[in-house]
């Protein structure tokens, strides 16, 4: 992990009507780092990463990714940045009219028109192998379990070979064992591909397993920051309360 910041958010504000969700977030993620953002539901975790990829427009503030302020980019320029970022959705967000193969091929074919069918197939197989679901290649999303959907979602993210992966609640809605498997998978992917990761979660086990550094979001602001053990032994009762059920 280097000290070179790959994501830098300064004074980020976002409101929905009168509801102020983000009230001036500041954070930096270094290259190769796995940063976890913890927080209760509605604290603005997902809004932060949605602003980061331009799904939501920030009201105020600066979001630099690869040293470029994404809030000032036009659609075409933003898409160039998006190609270097993978986004794993909370619900997997697989295209339900397409099979697993088609889900993976869709993005790949769209951006790499020069690839032969054999090459596409090879990359699909490789991505599925990385998430341990090669046998699911011809299945439809409706035939997959929650854990499998998350894995395929991750495979679809990996296939474009991103430099940064944003995980939005990767273990939400899963049983404890499957959630642990997903956390292990994230860790192995991070180790193999050496990508930078920003993981949004409220799952303490996931945060402990996957994060080099943890930030805790409260009322639209970064309330605390540190390693897992530092935060667990924090003098702040509210911060410590997160780790009570660990």
């Amino acid at each position: 992990m280097s000290e070179q910041p790959i994501i830098s958010i300064k004074n980020l504000h976002k409101s929905f009507g009168k509801n102020k969700v983000l009230r001036g977030i500041n954070l930096t993620v270094n290259k190769g780092e796995d940063l976890v953002i913890l927080g209760r539901s509605g604290s603005g975790k997902s809004v932060t990463i949605e602003c980061l990829v331009g799904l939501l427009e920030a009201d105020k503030g600066k979001i630099e990714v690869f040293g470029i302020d994404v809030t000032k980019l036009n659609y075409k320029e933003l898409n160039k940045i998006r190609l270097r970022i993978g986004f794993m959705f909370q619900n997997g967000a697989l295209y339900d009219s397409m099979s697993v193969r088609e889900n993976l091929a869709f993005t790949l074919k769209h951006h790499t028109k020069h690839l032969s069918e054999d090459e596409v197939e090879k990359q699909i197989n490789e991505a599925l192998e990385n998430v341990g679901l090669k046998e699911a290649i011809d299945k439809m999303p409706t035939e997959l379990s929650g854990g499998m959907i998350k894995r395929i979602g991750l495979a679809r993210t990996l296939i474009i070979k991103p430099e940064i992966i944003l995980y939005d609640e990767p273990t939400a809605g899963l049983d404890t064992i499957t959630a642990k498997e997903i956390s292990e998978l994230i860790l192995s992917v991070q180790n193999k591909y050496k990508t930078t990761a920003l993981i949004i979660t409220h799952d303490i086990t996931c945060a402990k397993m996957t994060g080099n550094r943890i930030m805790i979001l409260k009322d639209g602001l970064i309330h605390a920051e540190g390693t897992f053990n530092e935060l667990k032994n924090s003098i702040d009762d509210w911060v410590r309360s997160f780790f009570e059920y660990e």
Partner: peptide, 21 residues
Amino acid sequence: AELGSMKVTSQLNAMEVSAIN
């Protein structure tokens, strides 16, 4: 119904973040 379902299940966002319009 098709696009509405894609919208509420974040499939449209998935396309957007994959740089597909």
